[in-house]
Amino acid sequence: MTFLSHIITGLSLGSIYAIIALGYTMVYGIAKMLNFAHGDVIMVGAYVCFFAVTSYQLPAILAVPLAMVVCTILGIVIERLAYKPLRQAPSLAVLITAIGVSYFLQNSAQILWSASPKSFPSLFTVGGNKSLGLFGGQLQISYTAMATVLACIVIMLGLTWFTGNTKMGKAMRACSEDKAAAQLMGINVNFTISMTFAIGSALAAVAGVLMCSAYSYLLPTTGSLPGIKAFTAAVFGGIGSIPGAFLGGVLLGLIETFTKAYISTDLSDAVVFAVLIVVLLVKPAGLLGRYVPEKV
């Protein structure tokens, strides 16, 4: 029974990583940049949801979309102000800017909402219960965990469908391969990149709400470590690949949970990164990534 419950914990943690990793991977695939501020957008989404629920008594069904809208706008604004002017700049400049944006968001959150932790309410309850008891109550599955895994699967399938079947999604793939050629097709590359940031940031909001709902703890630095781990998950699965981000996220969550349960809580992050190193040594492009030689 404990084994099963570890699997559920691992899947739900992994689904959170996967949702964040999907945003990372979309932005990397299309804008070819690592948006290190992605984790902090998660935090903003969680705060928006927190205040909507606690200060304005909004139901979760309204608070979550509100957080998504705010993060979408935030993502578009960040891209427009911080990254778009650097489109022709060396990628190192963009990377440093992204780290700067990350600190800017964290510090702004501290000024606006203080550094003291907020206790995030549980958003997913059924009839007042936080979890569903199975096998006569021996196995408890939280509704948050169920919502998280479900949301992750829906998002992954949705993005796969979107990039494979819609005009905008295909244009995103075209931009990801060759921006100049995409322009010659009449595709507005700047708009496409904006849309990618919008989608990635909306997903970050969802991840933020689910994460804080599961761990009921919210700080201005809340998004930072999960952001880095989700980035790891995206690289693990093959950065730029949607199924890769999903697989990488879920595996990372499972590995982390099982390390905590059977090896050592303190070592869990070390094990996670050790696995990443081994995978990259064997498969440099990640589990589902394609190895593309750098053009010189």
Binding site: R173, A174, A180, A181, Q183, M185, G186, V189, R290
Partner: peptide
Amino acid sequence: SPNKLVSHGLAQVPEGRRIFLQM
């Protein structure tokens, strides 16, 4: 801008073809 020229009736087949190889 280049992406608007297409609707004006110009199309370019670029050097090296530049097709989208993964599509």
